[in-house]
Amino acid sequence: MICGVRFLLLSLFLLSGCDAFEYSPNVAFDNNSPRDINAKNLQKLLTVNNDDTIKIALTGDTQRSYEQTAAFVDKLNSIPNIDFVFLAGDISDFGLLQEMKWVNDYYSKLKVPYFGVIGNHDRVANGKEVFINMYGPVNYSFVFDGVKFVCYDSNGRESNFDGTTPDIEWIQNELKPQAGVNNFVTVCHVPAGDGDFDPTLFVRYGKVLDTTPGLLASLNAHKHKSGVYYPYGDNIPYIITSAIQHREFTIIKIFNGQLNYEFIDY
């Protein structure tokens, strides 16, 4: 009797504080899930005094790798002068709210703001709704220090290659010349030319990026292997960061219209 009551009370006590009353693993949000992470982090970023170099950490594929994610946060917090971090998709493995909350618990301990980008795993089940509720729109952009970062959903296979993903018209519009913008960088999960990129959009997409004056690079993830590709044979590098799962990320530096990168193991 006492044992049972203890068990009951103990379990209630242990769990009452930590989102234990789950209605379904597939809910789009719950009482404690964060909202508008990207917009809030942009507000933080824009209050920082810029120097003349933009220094970004490009990360991706945290899916189901919380130990490696925790180690990444410790590592990045020890690197000076980082402006912000991209988490370029596959935040979750199963498209579940709980997973994105777990990853955000770690990433929110970064000393600098971070921006989530949707990956193919984040679109599984109710994942897209979870992403929209937690991070904001799947396609978004912001300008920092004269560079416009254009972030979007490129997970064509999740749309069954129906010609909607990535949204070329939206991208084209975002890459138009704009006052105060000297350079462009695009950020998305699946790189052009990958088997999960919509093949019907491959040519148009490459042309849009190639014909954008001042476009420096496309930053991607998904392949779990770092590398730089030129899928169109033009001058636009497609920089792929390896997975946080593999304890790797990429430092991107932009200075005076030049972009360089460094792959980091930790």
Binding site: S11, A20, S65, D93, L96
Partner: peptide, 27 residues
């Protein structure tokens, strides 16, 4: 108190970092 197989795998793969109570859900 319950957990599902996807949460359980997440725990098993990260048990050094991840308290077991993370994956327990209540009804």
């Amino acid at each position: 108190v319950s957990t599902n197989e996807l949460y359980f795998i997440s725990f098993v793969q990260n048990h050094d970092e991840f308290p077991f109570t993370n994956i327990l859900k209540l009804g």
